[in-house]
């Protein structure tokens, strides 16, 4: 069974080739889709490679797309469904890493670490701090998928209240497992001290967080986005940060990388990272293992896990 693996340029191609060669001898690993035709039946991509109707024309024998990521908005699901192509993602491998990343941003903002660090580096020794506790805060999670749940389970020991919103409410037993109370999105935004977003990018979620939503949030509250930049209207967020004193932790941006002149980069009460929340040494290994396992499952005639189409 022929397999094509497309990895981003920044990943070490040779090492990946060596590692995946155990799956199949009939396997091609490359950095792009600039080819005329591929007879691969299986395509393994990351979220950086668009998989659309145009690519399908070049891959007439394609039957299974494995996205080695949680997000799969790079895949045109309609085009895949129209051609009977199965699509799976890996929803769990980086969930813990993203949850930790979101939590680290929250703690960094609550504890005012950017300011304290810069003060010491500037030769000062501040005696007053705006640092506050996570304990006792109301933490709102938007999107209770694998990342949202991983985050909720980490929040329990911090003695926060947990509220969540998702298009699909969890079962009562699940809510009790995570100690999370279901509320609608507007209620979540108005009641939470911290809002962390973990939704996929869809037409429903695109620009979901705009001025009307930021207006609902408490002054000085914290907004974390480690999902997709396009779920936020960035200029509205910048305005909310300036006018409402919102603090933001952003791993993703409307345009990546953001324009160096973006006002977002000039604000003090933000902490930023380059769409890397899910990327840790450990998570890459988990992605790798789970991707291989799922492809093997398909090759052996079993239904692949984590189907999204």
């Amino acid at each position: 069974m022929k397999i094509l693996v497309v990895v981003p340029e920044f990943l070490p191609l040779d090492q990946i080739k060596a590692a995946v060669s155990t799956i199949s001898s009939d396997l091609d690993v490359r950095n792009d889709t600039n080819f005329e035709r591929s007879d691969a039946e299986i395509l393994i991509v990351t979220t950086f490679t668009p998989v659309n109707a145009e690519l399908l024309k070049k891959m007439p024998r394609l039957r299974f797309v494995q996205v080695a990521s949680i997000g799969y908005d790079n895949v045109d699901l309609n085009a895949m469904k129209g051609n009977g192509i199965i699509v799976s993602n890996i929803p769990t491998a980086s969930a813990d890493s993203v949850a930790e990343h979101a939590l680290s941003m929250v703690l960094s903002l609550l504890k005012d670490q950017r300011f304290l660090d810069s003060e010491i580096r500037s030769g000062r020794w501040p005696k007053i701090t705006r640092s506050t506790d996570l304990m006792g805060k109301t933490f709102g999670i938007v999107g209770m998928g694998s990342i949202g749940r991983a985050l909720a389970s980490r929040l329990l020991p911090f003695k926060t209240a947990i509220i969540y919103y998702d298009i699909k409410r969890m079962s009562e037993a699940e809510e009790e497992e995570y100690g999370a109370t279901y509320v609608d999105l507007n209620r979540l935004l108005s009641d939470a001290d911290i809002v962390s977003v973990h939704v996929p990018l869809t037409e429903t979620t695109r620009h979901l967080f705009n001025k009307s939503k930021f207006d609902l949030m408490k002054d000085g509250s914290i907004f974390i986005n480690t999902s997709r930049g396009e779920v936020v209207v960035e200029k509205d967020l910048i305005e909310a940060i300036k006018k409402k004193g919102l603090r933001a932790g952003l791993d993703v941006f409307e345009t990546e990388p953001p324009d160096p002149k973006s006002e977002l980069l000039k604000l003090d009460n933000t902490i930023l990272s380059p769409h890397i929340a899910g990327v840790t040494i450990e998570s890459q290994m988990r992605f790798f293992k789970e991707t291989i396992a799922n492809v093997m499952r398909y090759m052996q005639g079993y239904e692949p896990n984590f189907r999204v189409a």
């Binding site: 329990l156 020991p157 009790e176 995570y178």
Partner: peptide, 9 residues
């Protein structure tokens, strides 16, 4: 909202 979280904890 702390009631449920506290109880689970």
């Amino acid at each position: 909202y702390m009631k449920l979280t506290d109880a689970v904890r």
